[in-house]
């Protein structure tokens, strides 16, 4: 049985890889299986975790659960054409909650926190900084400032302001390059993992 299962896994693995050459029936078959199985898998997991786990096993008598279920039922009103508009209520609820939650949390973690972290002496406390640290500190302050200038909407990028914005773009590009470079290696190891499966687990060529 397990032998058969490994053949299935290998068949699907190669079906996906074949897409790199071009779209073909093998890929379409793998894709169709992928979509069907994963959609079902997701719902089954959601059901056992969020419905069975919370209403039966967990905190079955919590009023909050029933408010959630009520909103969920309102959502299903979409299936009834005449009262379909009621489904906008839970939608409005979700949008309001998401907006409020993110507003205050992002303001705190992304704005307040980052500004606080940027306030530091360029020379290090008590001249403790090395030349490289010092350059680093100056770079952080200048980079953050000019990056913010780039995002300014109220002023055309011209003159000194435009020049500063250009410096800002320069920093943003280094940032993007850094995450790009940082990711490349891990992506390569993913591929090596799949090749290892094909040549090792399936074909038994790598022991």
């Amino acid at each position: 049985m397990e032998h058969f299962a490994i053949w299935v896994a290998a068949f699907l693995t190669m079906g996906i890889i074949s897409f790199l050459y071009k779209d073909n029936a093998w890929y379409k078959l793998s894709e169709a299986i992928f979509v069907g199985i994963s959609a079902g898998y997701w719902f089954v997991t959601l059901f056992w975790d969020n419905i069975y786990g919370k209403f039966w096993v967990g905190r079955g008598d919590d009023a909050m659960l029933y408010i959630g279920a009520f909103l969920g039922l309102l959502m299903l009103m979409r299936l009834v054409p005449k009262v379909g508009w009621i489904s906008r209520w839970p939608l409005a609820f979700i949008v309001g909650a998401t907006a409020g939650f993110y507003l205050i949390n992002y303001f705190s973690s992304n704005v307040m926190r980052q500004v606080e972290d940027t306030i530091m002496p360029l020379l290090g406390t008590d001249y403790s900084a090395t030349t490289y640290d010092m350059i680093g500190n100056i770079v952080i302050a200048v980079g953050t400032f000019s990056g913010l200038v780039y995002f300014f909407f109220s002023k055309e990028h011209k003159g000194v302001f435009g020049g500063t914005a250009k410096v800002g773009i320069f920093f943003l590009m280094i940032t993007f390059g850094a995450s790009f470079g940082y990711t490349v290696m891990s992506r390569m190891s993913l591929l090596i993992g799949r090749l290892d499966f094909l040549f090792g687990d399936w074909l038994g060529m790598i022991k």
Binding site: T118, I119, M120, L122, L123, Y127, A141, F145, L148, F152
Partner: peptide, 20 residues
């Protein structure tokens, strides 16, 4: 953004002068 920039400039200058 302007507020953040002003605070960063004042903060960094003050911190540098204070420590130097």
């Amino acid at each position: 953004k302007a507020l953040a920039m002003i605070v960063i400039v004042i903060g960094v200058l003050a911190a540098t002068i204070a420590s130097a």
